[in-house]
Amino acid sequence: MRRLAMTKAAALCAAVAFAAAMGPASAAPAGAPATPARAVAQPPRDTVLVDCFAKPQVRPADFVLACGDGNSRLAALRWTHWDTTSARAKGVNWLNDCEPYCAAGTFRSYPVVVRLDQTQSWKGHPPQQRYDRMTLTYTGDRPERSARTVTYALWD
């Protein structure tokens, strides 16, 4: 019985040693120099739009602007441009008129062009880049007492 256990243990050790020896040989072509992990180039990441829950978004279809109460959001976003320095979309800004107060208000939609720019490093996730500014341009009707173009600083 003891001899059988010793034989199994020896066979297991031999199998592990064989697998360990084969691992590196099958991972790199013969004669290829070993490359340190830090020297491997990472593919470029998309610049992100950080949402209310600190989650990175790339070309989102919807985006909440009023994180505290949800009284302003972008919807039906169709992105025509998204790169490392800026992004552009058309969509709708759904905005609560808060008349007579926000809980009793009515959501109204306004067509907008959205522009994202001023990229910078995302504090909690370097070297990830994020957009820091959003500009909305109302292309038709706009909210009462609102300028045609409105710019927001985005959260990190």
Rank of each mutant, 00 (worst) to 15 (best):
Q118R: 12
C13D: 07
A21E: 10
A9R: 10
F107I: 14
L49E: 02
C13F: 06
L77Q: 00
P29V: 08
R133M: 11
R59K: 10
G68P: 00
L12D: 14
N71W: 04
G31K: 08
R115C: 02
A104E: 11
G70D: 05
L154H: 02
A147W: 10
G31Y: 05
R145I: 14
T106Y: 07
K55P: 03
W122M: 02
A21V: 08
A34L: 03
R59P: 08
A30T: 15
T119E: 15
L49F: 07
W122L: 12
P36N: 12
K90R: 14
M134E: 01
Y101C: 09
R108P: 15
V114F: 00
A89T: 07
M22K: 04
R73S: 15
P33N: 15
F107Q: 09
L4P: 02
L4M: 14
S72D: 14
G124T: 07
P111D: 06
G70M: 07
G105F: 03
F63W: 13
R78S: 03
A11L: 15
T119Y: 06
Y138R: 01
A54S: 15
H81D: 15
R73I: 10
A41G: 11
G23I: 05
P33K: 10
A25R: 09
V113N: 01
R108Q: 15
D69I: 04
V16G: 10
D51A: 04
A153I: 08
G124Q: 13
E99K: 11
N93G: 04
D117S: 01
Q128K: 12
A19E: 05
A5N: 01
D46Q: 06
D97W: 01
R88L: 15
P126C: 01
R78A: 14
G124C: 05
T35Y: 02
L65K: 06
R133E: 02
R142W: 01
A61R: 05
A20N: 13
Q57P: 05
F107G: 03
D83R: 00
V92Y: 00
S86E: 05
D156A: 06
